[in-house]
């Protein structure tokens, strides 16, 4: 198949990682469908990607919290994409989430429910067609709950489990599912945080890693910076009775 005829659906088209990922695909000649809640901002990225790469980029309104609209969103797309990359997520505010149920609900739904339902609808359509690649951007925060961000972490843990199960189910059907654990990324979401440079990826690095893992290497789970795999192995191996007293 010629890459020029392939289409990417990027869900979360206003995020820094989404923009860079879409750019990577566009540079390789893919047509891009940019989906986002804020279509004005998405338009800004779409124009930029089109200007830089000369490929066709369209904007589609998507709010994953409006779950009853997801089918209609997919029906309205000009074509069923070859690959979907979902980068939708929201860190939220852990302390606020502890006392404000509506905020906690929003974080859980934005990071778990919305993306999972969107991808499961796409999985059905990919199954019907017999091909497709599904990429979910999850988080290392989902690999073990910590006091500082466990609501977000729990949602991401759910999303990671969902992707793992979907991969297990779709493996015999040759539909590929990739889970991405970016680690720290220098984005708007982390602006102002002090992040160790060696553990912190640029959004463009994440985009490049996603494109390579999804379209070339056909990996199942990636850590954008390999060192995060080691860190998470260590963190996961700490016994709970010790872990509960740690400040991480």
């Amino acid at each position: 198949m010629q890459p020029a005829h392939k289409t990417l659906l990027l869900a979360g088209g206003t995020s820094d990682i989404g923009r860079e990922t879409a750019l990577c695909y566009a540079r390789a000649g893919w047509r891009v469908l940019l989906a986002a809640r804020d279509v004005g901002e998405a338009r800004r990225n779409a124009d930029d990607i089109a200007a830089r790469t000369g490929t066709q980029v369209s904007v589609h309104r998507l709010d994953v919290l409006e779950t009853d609209q997801l089918q209609a969103f997919l029906d309205a797309l000009p074509t069923l994409p070859d690959t979907v990359v979902c980068v939708i997520g929201e860190l939220g505010d852990q302390t606020l989430a502890q006392r404000d149920f509506s905020h906690a609900t929003r974080v859980l739904r934005t990071n778990f429910e919305g993306p999972s339902l969107l991808l499961s609808l796409l999985a059905e359509r990919f199954l019907a067609r017999g091909s497709g690649t599904i990429v979910g951007v999850s988080s290392v925060a989902g690999l073990r709950g910590r006091a500082s961000n466990y609501v977000y972490g729990a949602a991401k843990a759910g999303f990671t489990a969902f992707l793992s199960g979907l991969r297990n189910r779709l493996a015999p059907e040759a539909i590929h599912v990739l889970t991405v654990n970016p680690g720290f990324v220098r984005t708007r979401m982390t602006a102002g945080m002090k992040l160790p440079p060696i553990l912190t990826a640029e959004p463009s690095e994440v985009g490049g890693a996603i494109f390579a893992a999804a379209e070339k290497a056909k990996k199942d789970v990636i850590y954008v910076r390999k060192i995060w795999w080691l860190i998470m192995q260590v963190i996961r191996s700490i016994p709970e009775r010790v872990f509960k007293r740690l400040k991480l």
């Binding site: 800004r44 990225n45 930029d48 200007a51 830089r52």
Partner: peptide, 16 residues
């Protein structure tokens, strides 16, 4: 520095 998009680029005339 975050206002770093290319808004339009005409590859014939070079207007950007």
């Amino acid at each position: 520095r975050s206002l770093n998009r290319i808004c339009a680029f005409d590859r014939q005339s070079g207007r950007i």
